[in-house]
């Protein structure tokens, strides 16, 4: 009843990362808990929004370049090697969509996060079709943006690796046998719990927000009023952390969750 949804739905699930434990906690963590610095290009014409964005990303430990118009953005994105591009959709002179289409046409595979005040279902589809990897509607919480940017950066670094096993600390997931164990203990999960944990493990060390979970584990893009996602995570946490002294699933206040060894 209700649990028989097939796998392979989440956009971020099929990209296979095999290095679940490479980003373990390194003591003093920056702003939102990501410890691998990325090189990010922000293409945004609104000076105040851009300043806020650049400041936040820099404080989170990333290297950030900012350009205010599409032509410069195209030039920078083409000539430098960035981990993630953050592109505003409404730019003077050129639509952000067109920029990404040109970049994709030229063979650039750098992950792109669209920022847009246009938030309808159709706009979102258009953005992803133009070659965007994620789409965030303005206004957004910075924590949401950061989590998504870091998820995109991670994705690229592991894009080519296909794997059948995920490992974060003592937590192991066998994707073929659909089995999970923590240390010596076998953990039985419902299909949806398995998919949830898989997503968390693929983004281990990163903050994942509730909307990211809804989008990637359930493939829906709306905002449920009830705390449905929290309940799912709470149940998963019960199974993963209950009998162990150190918790692995952490709640990041005001942002979401983070799976850490």
């Amino acid at each position: 009843m209700g649990g028989g949804v097939g796998g392979g739905m989440g956009g971020g699930m099929g990209d296979g990362t095999g290095e679940g434990q490479s980003r373990e906690a390194s003591g003093d963590r920056p702003f939102f808990g990501y410890d691998g610095a990325m090189k990010i290009l922000v293409i945004e014409d609104d000076a105040q929004a851009a300043a806020y964005l650049v400041k936040g990303l820099k404080e989170s430990g990333h290297v950030v370049d900012h350009v205010a118009d599409g032509k410069d953005g195209l030039f920078m994105a083409g000539s430098e090697n960035y981990d993630v591009l953050i592109v505003d959709r409404m730019l003077p002179g050129r639509d952000g969509l067109a920029i990404v289409e040109i970049l994709r046409g030229a063979g650039t595979t750098t992950p792109v996060l669209f920022l847009s005040a246009l938030g309808s279902v159709d706009d979102r589809v258009r953005g992803l079709r133009a070659g965007g990897d994620d789409y965030l509607t303005k206004p957004y919480a910075f924590s949401e943006l950061l989590a998504r940017v870091e998820a995109l950066g991670r994705r690229k670094s592991a894009a080519e690796v296909t794997t059948t096993k995920l490992q974060v600390g003592e937590l192991e997931m066998d994707l073929l046998a659909r089995k999970v164990r923590r240390g010596a203990k076998q953990i039985d999960l419902l299909p949806r719990e398995f998919r949830l944990l898989e997503y968390l493990m693929r983004h281990a060390g990163n903050v994942v927000t509730r909307t990211m979970l809804l989008e990637n584990v359930w493939d829906y893009h709306f905002d449920p009023q009830t705390n449905v996602i929290d309940v799912h995570v709470a149940r998963l946490r019960q199974k993963i952390d209950r009998d162990f002294p150190t918790p692995m699933i952490h709640t990041v206040r005001g942002a979401g969750y983070c799976l850490r060894a």
């Binding site: 949804v5 949806r192 829906y220």
Partner: peptide
Amino acid sequence: ARQMADLYEPAAEE
């Protein structure tokens, strides 16, 4: 509907 049930069932039980 199954996906929505899957999404909401735990919250309902909670």
